[in-house]
Design a protein around this nucleic acid. Structure first.
Length: 708
DNA sequence: GTAGGGTTAG
């Protein structure tokens, strides 16, 4: 495949037209062929799945069993009978489409005729919408209905009621009036309203009532039930109602079908989705943009780039033009699959096709550029947005601010923040303030951060736990411990619930406190949030406590901490020990951290090189790890065991503009130990020592610089 | 939101 044009744009089909009957039933093969042909550099993830034996139990054939055995197949027809009696006859006419799994015609909506009493009824509905009623007062107001609740009048009002509670009450009231027999459309309109309120249970009750009263459930009913279940995360219910529909002999149309495709997609059942998709395609279905959006979202969630290409290819082959939603989903998917360049080309393709991006398009792109650290592209896009007057909203602005925080773009962030304040549709909210606190916190501008903190109540914006964490970190770094205590107390009093990240932040501030009073003040804050952690710190400081006790308490504290915060906690605890001159405790903690899997990949060995990767360690933990490593090497040298040529320690360079150099701290510790590690010129963030130098150094340590 | 499906933030 030619690589001169961006792949996102250049997606020529490796096979002929899939609508050609010859190709109708071989989409799986096409997809696999496509994957193999077009992605030599990445593993064919889509096709991998079907061969994965672990997935056998949840395969589509299992999934679709109730459908394929009972309803989807032509049950006990002459055809099936003939096949049974003539098993050797396997020839199938390829020009004959497979039996349908969906109805090619979408269910028609009823036309509503002009209602001469529209004006009064609308006014009445408005009155019902605006008032706050108890159930009984609502029902008494209903008695004032200006015209009798005929079918048309009732439908008009039901359609106008906004809250699900009122719609439900009105629906039940109409039933009690007995002025006409209830029809499907009344249930459908009520269900739609209930779906806004995510009232699946009530929807299911209505559906069962329809079955009981023999009122027909149509495609609109089923798709509403299924999508409500989906929005309530009741995926099994969604599948249950879908299967039920088939069992009653009703064929889904494409709306219901793509709704259920989305259910399987949200369940992560990729093979099932593709199989459903292909079966529908084989029976002649031309998927619309909604179906492709479902597929694109699914592949995006899986980070499956081959799948994304498959979607693009299918659309191109079928001549389906992507709309804005499809482009947005594809862009997001490209981002999740880690393809910023392709996302950029796809965006250009979208604009060239004459579509205008909306705020979701731009949010997706900014996120992608930020993640890729493409600040120039991001800022150019921002300029282009302003120039073209492309739509913005507060989520887009907040995404831009987060990107600025990630890339250290302080001035740009302030400009954006000012724009938000001037805007009508994107006033700063707690996310915006969090991003700003993060930016100035990282920049070390504690004055500006405090200014933002003070102005928040004036604008009616609540501080959230993340903003609080950023500010605490900033004040801690600036050594403003009294302000820190004030901010912490005010935040907790304002309703901020400290989480493990905030605790980790306080712990890290405590670990850099040089003044003992400050140290105790910070621990005082931490005590309000996590007293067990503070007790553990005190236990570490008690030299009479033995290793067994430390192990026991460590296990308790760490197991009660969220997984993401465990390593930071351990890092900070090690730092605190080192600051308090409790070096052996630091070594014990590093050992415990390793035992409990907090430092995976710390040591790496090949025949030629042993390396220590301290990139996820704090300064103190990295120093401790280096000392520990040197102790081990001393023992190996003494025992005259085989050593590799090269030793390396990886500190990383820190991609963040504001990140403190772990490398610098490591370098000074190496020089303090007089260990023969040198910063590598070819490999950034890497310290190298040769075997000969290291052995000489170990032998010169008498007594060893790093005590055993 | 005038009976049903798909897309935005640590």
């Amino acid at each position: 495949m030619a690589r001169t044009v961006p792949a996102a744009v250049d997606l020529r089909c490796p096979l002929s037209n899939p609508l050609d009957p010859k190709n109708r039933n071989c989409l799986t093969a096409r997809r696999r062929f496509f994957v193999l042909c077009n992605s030599p550099e990445s593993p064919p993830r889509v096709s991998d799945r079907s061969s994965d034996p672990r997935r056998k139990n949840s395969s589509l054939s299992e999934q679709l069993k109730p459908l394929s055995t009972s309803t989807l197949s032509t049950p006990r027809t002459a055809e099936a009978h003939a096949l049974k009696s003539k098993p050797k006859s396997t020839w199938v006419n390829p020009a004959r489409p497979k039996r349908s799994v969906l109805n090619p015609n979408r269910q028609a909506r009823s036309q509503h005729s002009y209602n001469p009493r529209m004006r009064e009824l609308r006014l009445f509905a408005q009155k019902l919408n605006e008032g706050e009623f108890s159930e009984s007062s609502f029902l008494s107001v209903l008695e004032e209905i200006p015209h009798p609740p005929t079918r048309e009048n009732a439908l008009l009002i039901l359609n106008s009621l906004k809250s699900w509670q009122k719609a439900h009450l009105f629906f039940n009231w109409v039933k009690t009036q007995n002025s006409f027999p209830m029809e499907t459309i009344f249930y459908n309109v009520t269900m739609k309203s209930l779906r806004f309120g995510r009232q699946f249970q009530l929807i299911e009750e209505l559906a069962n009532e329809m079955i009981r009263d023999e009122i027909e459930l149509d495609n609109i009913t089923y798709s509403t039930i299924i999508t409500c279940a989906k929005r309530c995360y009741l995926f099994d219910k969604a599948v249950e109602w879908f299967e039920r529909m088939y069992k009653t002999g009703l064929m889904p149309d494409e709306v219901t079908y793509s709704a259920i495709l989305d259910v399987y997609a949200k369940l992560g059942k990729v093979e099932e989705v593709l199989s459903l998709y292909e079966r529908a395609r084989a029976s002649g279905w031309k998927p619309d943009p909604v179906a492709f959006s479902v597929l694109a979202k699914m592949f995006g969630e899986a980070g499956d780039y081959d799948g994304i290409r498959y979607v693009l290819e299918e659309m191109r082959a079928l001549g389906v033009k992507p709309n804005v939603v499809v482009y947005n989903t594809l862009l997001e998917a490209m981002g999740k699959a880690g393809k910023p360049g392709l996302a950029r080309s796809l965006f250009e393709e979208m604009v060239e096709s004459g579509l205008s991006p909306n705020e979701k398009t731009l949010t997706a792109l900014i996120k992608i550029y930020g993640k890729a650290r493409w600040s120039r592209d991001a800022l150019e896009l921002w300029e282009r947005m302003r120039f073209n007057g492309w739509p913005t909203d507060f989520i887009l602005y907040n995404t831009l601010l987060s990107m600025c925080a990630d890339l250290g773009l302080v001035e740009e962030a302030e400009r954006l923040f000012e724009d938000m304040k001037q805007s009508e549709n994107a006033q700063p909210d707690s996310w915006s303030y969090t991003a700003m606190l993060n930016i100035h916190g990282s920049d070390g501008n504690s004055d500006r951060a405090m200014e933002l903190f003070e102005e928040m109540p004036q604008f009616g914006v609540e501080l959230n736990v993340m903003g609080c964490t950023c500010l605490i970190q900033c004040l801690g770094k600036a050594g403003r411990v009294d302000d820190l205590v004030r901010v912490f107390d005010a935040s907790v009093n304002r309703g901020v619930q400290p989480d493990d990240r905030l605790c980790g932040c306080l712990l890290s501030v405590a670990s850099v406190c040089e003044d003992q009073d400050d140290f105790l003040k910070v621990l005082g804050c931490l005590n309000r949030a996590n007293s067990k952690l503070v007790n553990f710190v005190k236990l570490l400081q008690d030299e009479s406590v033995n290793f067994e006790k430390v192990t026991e308490e460590f296990k308790i504290v760490i197991s009660e901490t969220t997984v993401e915060a465990r390593r930071p906690f351990c890092n900070c605890l090690i730092d605190i020990c080192r600051n308090q001159n409790l070096h052996e405790r630091a070594h014990e903690l590093l050992y415990l951290g390793s035992v409990y899997g907090l430092y995976p990949g710390l040591h790496n060995k090949t025949a030629d090189e042993w390396s220590l990767d301290v990139r996820s360690l704090s300064v103190g933990a990295a120093q401790t790890a280096l000392e520990e490593w040197m102790r081990t090497l001393s023992r190996i040298v003494k025992r005259e065991e085989v050593l590799p040529q090269l030793f390396s320690a990886q500190t990383g360079t820190g991609t963040h503009k504001f990140s403190q150099g772990l490398a610098n701290a490591f370098a000074s510790h190496v020089s303090k130990l007089a260990a023969p590690f040198r910063q590598s010129e070819e490999r950034a963030g890497m310290f190298i020592a040769k075997r000969e130098d290291l052995v000489l150094w170990v032998q010169s340590q008498d007594p060893p610089a790093v005590t055993a």
